[in-house]
Structure formats: structure tokens, C-alpha cells
Design a protein around this nucleic acid. Structure first.
Length: 965
DNA sequence: GCTGTGCATGGTT
DNA sequence: GAACCATGCACAG
């Protein structure tokens, strides 16, 4: 055996310039088969297992022996014999390894996580056996166990060469692997499966595996393993530094498998193609010969799956060397290999590796590709920090809205849960300690509930963690296991941080995107590298959503936005009960509170987008950032906007525009600067602009009649007659409703409870919210502002028609009102009495009044800005019937809200002005003063920009106002 | 009225 | 067509 180092007189250790001894001292085995020839000093250091300590103590890859704590270098070829990798992760120095085996070392899940599951006897036996074999006195360089050692070590040898995998799995995994038990494979999985079945040496493969299953290290198995390892390296262009010698492949008893570098494997008659061998990726682990599909060559280290195929918590931790050089993550590796390999074998390998990179990989094969961990080096580094911890990526999941929502339940992919999380037999599950990327421990409840004939696994209580990581829907959480602690680690990847292709290339030298696309369906690829469905982070997400959310839709009441900016679509309780559900319609029946309430028109928050925007106030002291989304400008605030006090804008004959706000206490109207943005509650004391009128005792600047006259026509409202009519008209408010109308047909009144869409049960046809407009799986066009489809055209046309009609009606009413005002000389008391008589004398009106307001007469008598005979004659209830001359929701809303305001004032005993009628201001629905999502069109909060549109103080709270007013 | 829980539904894969 | 899973929703507290 010629030694490559023998030709030199110098010690083979590059850090040593000494002349090698004579005879030279043999060190580690070289890849060419020789041994490194060292000088006395280096040779001595090597023999004393202090070579690494002596020559590269500063190098990376040092680990502590799990047994004695001794530092052991795991990162160079000189140290490959100095330690063994433990099943449960971590390493053990040879001194400890030679000690009697302690089965407990196989424990994967530390007590801190779960009770240590019992190791199957068979596995224990095998483990002990294999360990004993390994640690036998005959351990010398060249022992078969060192194959594992070396390979495992190779994982840590990133500075020397690409990490070598060591795929270990349980024998019964082999059963599953070979059997047809494999579940319906994905596209990739199918390839793998097909490839398995193409294995030419199936017989040998099976024999080898069978031998392994029987606990014997058969020649076949080892040969297959040997060959595979060799072939694998070749394919992957790796140094041929692992060789396994099988003296006689036919002799199952006499082979010597040597992981010694330089011992060339010679396997006669065994022509394993790499792809074929992939599935026979048998490695000799410290616990047992395991079969396992190949680990990515650049990938993860040893791991042992549980004897329980599906969800045995005894799954043994794999190891992944901490990467000194940016190694590709499994997924990258997967794709990288596919790219590099260029052939089916390479692709197969990568599939396998990605699918079953480790012990977990066997089960991972069953995972959808979208759950395959695509953890990047940075993420690994983020998780592992500076420690020597070994990270084993398990799976990842893109957070859904539900996951990221306030419910705090993270739905776990079933197979992932069963594969990587402990077995739970009770729905209550187990508390699961998970460490986040910052090292903070969280305890989640890992549980399930029955779902059909299956289970649905969830992690409960994740909200704090998710919020702490500032994750939202579209972001991805990754689950990894950190060894040797065996901790579960939850990393994350912000959707906005999806690494670019270039970045990925930079990170591992390979591009993932291409293969990602190649191997994953579009949706899967999208899942793997999701684009946040909302542009520009949380705030802009809200912006975008708001822009498209139809705020007439109660599915997005204000309360759906929590302080963190999440869209809380998971409406529960009363709010969520506001709408019928088509989904549940078949089962709800009379039980459906949601349906019943809706049908009774009891409460529904209906606001148009513009109306809502009127109420939005930028958060104080924040300068917005203007973003343009689909042609719309939005103000982005880092803080959520607040719901401000509605105001009205008037234009006097001179063309001067003023803003008016009503004091919460005295209900007097005060003139404000045009750009004044008021908080939800505003009183005269806040009238800083006009100190004379900064007190409720100060008189109103102008009479309410005058103010009324200054109002634009659309700024006036009327009362609805009945709730049904009200809703019918109010339903016509807004583009959303118009869209509904357009869909339903011209002239067809939208029922108060339009049929929800099947796509989004709480939304209705025409709903333009981000959910409803999003076609499934990214298919289909979206309706843009410039869309000219029939629906959009109809919507626009009807909107124009409605507005014209409204203005016309308003003009007519305006004339009538002025006429009536001119004739009005009666006192409020008389009006009240008359109004009561009138009302009493008109059953229909009485009914209407009672139905819509608890006491409309009071409104008429004391609150109406149109006093005297106005109330008696104009019969606003009638006018609000959806007739050609009636007004629609906005007007009605003004009156309704005015009613509420008046009643409020009456309850408080507050005189209404100085006997002057007032225009009552809308009171935002109760509890609306809190934070609001930071959303708003560019013109929101800028009155000037809205002068030409209706005074949107008509926040429509149809039935709630009626019910409570 | 709100929140949490458990389950059901139905769209997607 | 089956399984998965996102999310709706009833109900209890």
C-alpha cells in the first residue's frame, strides 16, 4: 500500500513542519488508503487522542462528550476515531464509548419534554449489541463501527469536505420502506417510490435489509451499504473517503466493514446504482444497523427514528453538525442534488434526502413537500446560536390566518405531528416545551381532536410565542430538534424574508427555486416560499385588506382587528353570529343564532368603505408613509389608527368650507379647522381653536338651522320606517352592496342577509375583501379598479344611479324642509304632543316607530333639527321607503343616529342647545374608540379631499341603533 | 358580551 | 375519492 504521505519527509500534519519519524508513526487513514505518516510528536498526539487539541484547538467542531464532558473534536479526519455519535444526539468520547453501554443514551426526548418512552426491547437489544460491538476491545482503526463514526464525523467536517450523511433508521422503517405501506406519495415521493422499485438489486437490497432486520450485519447489507456510500459520494462528487471492505460479499459472516479511509470497497457483482441504493442507505450506527434512505450528503447527521414508525416519542435524535461553512439546508440540498445530479438518480437522491434525510426522514417521506424543512443556514445559526448544539430540522409550516390568529392554535400537519411529536392518545395531549429561536422556552399544549376518522393536531397556546416572533399569516415556522438536549426548537421565517434565489445560491451554492418549482406544485412552492398575502407587513396588510374589505360586511367589524394588527377573522361570539352561514345552513336550522339574528335584522354593522374612512384618524404623532397598492394610495402608520369622532363639513354661500363637530357633553356644534382630527370623544373643552367656545356654556356659533342649511344635500338623513325597509335600503349602500345588486340583477332588492359565498361563508357575493377576491390557489383574475367586466361596470353604473337619485331626492326634501321650517312656530312641547298624537293616530307610523326606535316621538319632539310641523308632516319614515323618492341609508342613518343622540341627551337631561334644534351627530358605535387598524386611504382624515362626497357621518348601525336607541 | 374549547364543514391537495 | 387542514361555529364558562 503506497502511501501518499510516504513520499514526503515531512510530517503529514500540515501544522507541523517536523520531519516524520523513522519509521514514521501512523496516524489516520487517508482517503487514498494510506495512513498519515506523522512525526513522533504528532503521532504521539494522535495516538493519545489529543491531536486535535494540540493542533487545532481553535477550530470549530468541538463537542463535549455526553458521558464525561471531555471536549472532543468532531470536525476533522484526525478525530474521527476519537468519538462516536450517540443515538440521541451528541457524542461520546471513545473512552466512554468503551464503557458498558447505557441504554439511556438512546433517549431522544429529554425528560424535560416528555417522559422517556420505553425503548423497544428489540431496539435495545440491537442497540446494546451494536454498541458492544463497537466498543469491543478489538476496536482498532478499521473497525466496522468506525464507518458510522467516520460518517457521523463527516457531518462535522464541514471544513474538510462536505458533510457526509449517516442515515439511520429503524428496521421496521425498512419494512415500511420496502413494503407498499407507503402512503399515497406526492409527486416526489412517487418518484422515490418508483425508484425504489427500479432497484436492480432488489433481492440483495431486501436481503440486506432483512439481515438488518434480523439484527445481523450481513455481508449483503454491509456491502450494499458500502457500495452505496461509495456510489453516493461519487455521484455527489465527494471525496471518496469512506470505504468499506467486504472480503467476500457472499460470505455473510466474514466481512469486515471498514470505514477506514483508503480501504477500497470492492463489491463484486453488486452494481448498485446510486438511486437504487438510495433506499438501501444503510448505515451502521452506534445503536444498530439502521436502514434509511440516504441522508443528504450535505445534510443532516445521524438520526434514529423511533421504533414506532408513526409517532413514537422514542424517536432518536439525529445530529446535524453545526455548520462552519454554510451548508445547504435539507431542502436546498435536495434541490441542489437534483440540479447537480441532473439525472434521475440525483433527483431521486435528493428527493429521498429531502424526504427522508434522517431518521425522521423515513417518516418525512410521508410529509407533503410543503412541510419539508427548508431551513437555511442562517436560520440554523439563529437557532443554534453559538452553542455546539446540533439542529435537526423536522418540518416547517406556513402560518395560516388561523395559526397566526388570536385563537392561539397552530394546526400541525398530521403527519408531522405524528412523526416528530410525542405520541398522544388522549385529546388532551401533552404539554410540549418548545424553545424559540431566541432560546426562550415556551410550553404549548400538543393535542388533537378527532376529525372525521382522523385526528387534527394542534399546538395550543402559541399566540404569545408567535407574537413574540412577530409572525403573521404567511410567515413560516420551522420545527427543529436541538441535540443533544433533544429540545424542540421553533424557528421562523418571515414571508418577507424569503431568501432570494441568489441568496440561496449564495448560501449553499445551489439554487432552490428552480427545483422547488420543479418538484413542487405551484401551491406547494408557494407554500415553501410563501409570499405574504398582504403587502408590506402587518400594517400594510391591514391597509391592503381594508382597501379590499367590504366594510359593509360584518365579517370585518372593527373589532376584528386586534392591537397587533392581525385580522381577526375568527369571529366568535356575538359578532360572529351576525351573519348566516351557508356552510352551516344545512345544520343550523332554527338553532342558528347567527341566522336568526340576521333575519331579525337585530344588529348589523354596515359601513361603506368611505364611511369607515371618515371615522379613521391617524394615530397621533405618527407620520404616515404613503404606499400605493393597485393604484390606491394608502397611508401607513406604524400605529393603528384610531376611530375618530365624525364631523360634518359645510360650505357657506361664500364657498367657505368649515368643519363642525358636536360636543359630546352639550351636543353643541363647534366649528373646527378643516384639518382637525378629533378623538372619538370630543367636547367643547377640546375646542382649542376657539377659546370663546371651548366651554359647553358657550352658545353655539350658529343655529342648527343655519348649520343644516350649510350641509350638502347628501348630508341629511331621514328615519327609516321599518327595519326591513331600512336594511333593504341600507343594503344598497356602498359598492359592496351594489356589487350584490349587480349580481342579483337590476332593481332586485338585496335581502338583508344575502347568501354568503361558498368561498368565504361569511362573505357575500360581491364581497371584495382580500379573501373573497382571491381566487383559489392563485387562479383567476382579480377585479381591479380599472376592471371593465360586467359586474364591475354594473356596480359602477348602479352606484352612479344611486347617487344621482339620492341627490335628487335630497333636493326635493330640502325644498320641502325649508318650506316647513318657514311655517314652523310651534314649541317643542307642542310638537311633542302633536307628534305623539300624530303617531298614535297613524298605526302604520306607530308601528314603524316602535319597530325602529323605541320612541321616535321623542326624537321628533326634541331632537329633530326640523322642528314644528316638520315632524308632523314630512313623515320621514315614509320617505325612507325604498321608493323613487325616498332616501337611502346614509340619510336614514343620520336620522337614526340623531335619534340616538337625542335620546342620550334626554337621558342625561341635557337641554338641546338653547332651544335650538341641533343636527345630531353620529355616535360611533359603542366601544369604537379604541385602536383601529392602521389603514386608511390617502385622503382619509383629510376633509378637503372629501368635500365632494357625501358627508359620511352615516355610520350605519342599523339594528343596533334601533334596538338600543 | 366575550373568550376558550371542541367539533364540523368544506375547500384543497 | 380520500385525506388533510383551514376555519367556521356552537356552546360552555
Amino acid at each position: 500500500m503506497s502511501s501518499s504521505s510516504s513520499s514526503s519527509k515531512i510530517c503529514f500534519n500540515p501544522d507541523c513542519k517536523e520531519a516524520k519519524s523513522d519509521p514514521s508513526r501512523k496516524g489516520w487513514r487517508l482517503r487514498v488508503g494510506d495512513f498519515a505518516e506523522l512525526c513522533d510528536r504528532c503521532g504521539s498526539a494522535y495516538e493519545e487522542v489529543r491531536f486535535c487539541e494540540t493542533f487545532h484547538s481553535d477550530a470549530a467542531g468541538w463537542r463535549n462528550c455526553e458521558s464525561c464532558g471531555k471536549k472532543v473534536h468532531c470536525g476533522c479526519i484526525a478525530s474521527v476515531h476519537a468519538f462516536i455519535l450517540l443515538d440521541a444526539g451528541g457524542i461520546e468520547c471513545m473512552a466512554c464509548a468503551r464503557k458498558p453501554y447505557i441504554a439511556a443514551s438512546n433517549q431522544i426526548w429529554p425528560p424535560s419534554l416528555f417522559p422517556p418512552p420505553p425503548l423497544p426491547d428489540r431496539l435495545k437489544d440491537l442497540s446494546v449489541k451494536s454498541r458492544n460491538q463497537m466498543t469491543g476491545p478489538s476496536s482498532v482503526p478499521g473497525q466496522w463501527w468506525q464507518a458510522t463514526n467516520l460518517w457521523n464525523t463527516a457531518h462535522s467536517q464541514s471544513e474538510l469536505r462536505p458533510r457526509m450523511p449517516c442515515d439511520v433508521d429503524r428496521p421496521n422503517n425498512v419494512d415500511k420502506l420496502i413494503s407498499s405501506e407507503r402512503p399515497s406519495p406526492s409527486a416526489q415521493e412517487k418518484k422515490v417510490k418508483d425508484s425504489y422499485e427500479r432497484i436492480p438489486s432488489t433481492g440483495l437490497k431486501l436481503a440486506a435489509l432483512d439481515s438488518l432486520l434480523n439484527g445481523n450485519v450481513s455481508a449483503d447489507a454491509l456491502t450494499a451499504f458500502s457500495t452505496f456510500r461509495k456510489e453516493e459520494r461519487k455521484v455527489d462528487g465527494l471525496p471518496d473517503d469512506i470505504h468499506i471492505t467486504v472480503d467476500d460479499p457472499a460470505d455473510t459472516k466474514k466481512r469486515v466493514i471498514a470505514a477506514e479511509p483508503g480501504l477500497t470497497s470492492s463489491v463484486a457483482g453488486m452494481n448498485f446504482e446510486t438511486h437504487s441504493s438510495s433506499c438501501v442507505n444503510i448505515s451502521l450506527s452506534s445503536s444498530k444497523l439502521k436502514d434509511e434512505p440516504s441522508t443528504p450528503l450535505f445534510g443532516l447527521g445521524v438520526s434514529l427514528s423511533s421504533p414506532n414508525e408513526t409517532n413514537d416519542p422514542a424517536k432518536v435524535s439525529g445530529t446535524l453538525s453545526q455548520r462552519q461553512t454554510p451548508p445547504p439546508p435539507p431542502a436546498k440540498q435536495f434541490f441542489a442534488n437534483s440540479q447537480n445530479g441532473g439525472d434521475s438518480s440525483g433527483e431521486l437522491q435528493t428527493h429521498i434526502r429531502n424526504g427522508r434525510p434522517r431518521g425522521e426522514g423515513q417518516r418525512r417521506t410521508h410529509l407533503l413537500p410543503r412541510y419539508w424543512p427548508r431551513i437555511t443556514d442562517q436560520e440554523l445559526q439563529q437557532i443554534s446560536g453559538d452553542s455546539n448544539s446540533v439542529i435537526t430540522p423536522l418540518f416547517e409550516k406556513m402560518l395560516s390566518a388561523s395559526d397566526a390568529g388570536r385563537i392561539g392554535r397552530l394546526v400541525l400537519p398530521k403527519k408531522c405531528a405524528e412523526a416528530y411529536f410525542p405520541t398522544i392518545s388522549q385529546p388532551e395531549g401533552l404539554p410540549l416545551k418548545v424553545q424559540d429561536a431566541r432560546g426562550k422556552d415556551w410550553v404549548f399544549q400538543f393535542r388533537f381532536w378527532p376529525n372525521n376518522n382522523s385526528r387534527m393536531y394542534v399546538l395550543e397556546g402559541v399566540t404569545p410565542c408567535i407574537q413574540s416572533m412577530q409572525l403573521q399569516a404567511g410567515d413560516t415556522v420551522t420545527f427543529s430538534r436541538i441535540d443533544p438536549e433533544g429540545k424542540l426548537v421553533m424557528g421562523f421565517r418571515k414571508a418577507s424574508n424569503v431568501p432570494s434565489e441568489q441568496a440561496l445560491k449564495t448560501g449553499n451554492g445551489f439554487s432552490t427555486s428552480g427545483e422547488n418549482n420543479k418538484n413542487a406544485k405551484p401551491s406547494e412552492a408557494g407554500s415553501a416560499f410563501p409570499l405574504r398575502p398582504y403587502k408590506g407587513g402587518a400594517d400594510s396588510a391591514i391597509h391592503s385588506s381594508i382597501n379590499q374589505i367590504n366594510l359593509t360586511d360584518p365579517a370585518y367589524p372593527w373589532s376584528k382587528f386586534d392591537k397587533t394588527g392581525y385580522i381577526q377573522k375568527e369571529g366568535t361570539g356575538a359578532k360572529s353570529s351576525l351573519l348566516p352561514s351557508k356552510r352551516k345552513s344545512s345544520t343550523l336550522g332554527s338553532k342558528s343564532k347567527r341566522l336568526r339574528i340576521n333575519n331579525e335584522d337585530s344588529m348589523e354593522l354596515k359601513m361603506t368603505w368611505e364611511q369607515t374612512q371618515e371615522l379613521l384618524r391617524p394615530p397621533p404623532n405618527y407620520v404616515p408613509t404613503i404606499v400605493v397598492i393597485e393604484g390606491h394610495e394608502f397611508e401607513e402608520y406604524e400605529e393603528a389608527p384610531v376611530l375618530g369622532k365624525p364631523t360634518i363639513f359645510t360650505t357657506n354661500p361664500a364657498g367657505e368650507t368649515n368643519q363642525w363637530a358636536q360636543c359630546e357633553d352639550c351636543s353643541k356644534w363647534r366649528k373646527l379647522p378643516l384639518d382637525a382630527l378629533l378623538p372619538a370623544r370630543w367636547t367643547c373643552s377640546g375646542n382649542l381653536m376657539d377659546p370663546k367656545r371651548s366651554s359647553c356654556s358657550a352658545a353655539q356659533e350658529i343655529t342648527t338651522e343655519q348649520l343644516e342649511d350649510l350641509l350638502p344635500p347628501t348630508g341629511r338623513s331621514k328615519r327609516s320606517k321599518t327595519k326591513e325597509e331600512t336594511d333593504a335600503v341600507e343594503a344598497a349602500e356602498g359598492l359592496d352592496t351594489l356589487a350584490n345588486l349587480a349580481i342579483l340583477g337590476e332593481g332586485e332588492a338585496l335581502p338583508p342577509s344575502a347568501q354568503p359565498t361558498t368561498k368565504h361563508p361569511r362573505h357575500r357575493p360581491g364581497c371584495t375583501c382580500i379573501v373573497c377576491i382571491q381566487p383559489p390557489s392563485g387562479k383567476g383574475p382579480k377585479h381591479k379598479q380599472t376592471c371593465t367586466c360586467n359586474v364591475c361596470l354594473t356596480v359602477k353604473r348602479r352606484f352612479r344611479t344611486l347617487m344621482l337619485r339620492r341627490e335628487k331626492r335630497q333636493s326635493e326634501k330640502e325644498a320641502e324642509r325649508k318650506k316647513q321650517q318657514f311655517q314652523s312656530t310651534e314649541k317643542p312641547e307642542q310638537e311633542d304632543e302633536l307628534a305623539g298624537n300624530k303617531s298614535n293616530g297613524s298605526p302604520s307610523q306607530k308601528t314603524a316607530a316602535n319597530g325602529d326606535d323605541e320612541d321616535p316621538n321623542r326624537w321628533k319632539s326634541s331632537c329633530s333639527p326640523f322642528k314644528g310641523r316638520i315632524d308632523l308632516n314630512i313623515q320621514p319614515e315614509r320617505e325612507e321607503e325604498p321608493s323613487p323618492v325616498s332616501d337611502s341609508g346614509g340619510m336614514m342613518q343620520l336620522l337614526r343616529d340623531a335619534t340616538e343622540q337625542c335620546l342620550k341627551q334626554q337621558r342625561l337631561g341635557t337641554p338641546v342647545g338653547n332651544g335650538e334644534p341641533v343636527i345630531n351627530q353620529v355616535e360611533p358605535s359603542s366601544g369604537t374608540g379604541g385602536e383601529r387598524p392602521s389603514v386608511g386611504p390617502h385622503n382619509s382624515g383629510h376633509p378637503d379631499a372629501d368635500k365632494d362626497r357625501p358627508v359620511s357621518i352615516s355610520m350605519t348601525v342599523s339594528a343596533s341603533t334601533s334596538a338600543t336607541g
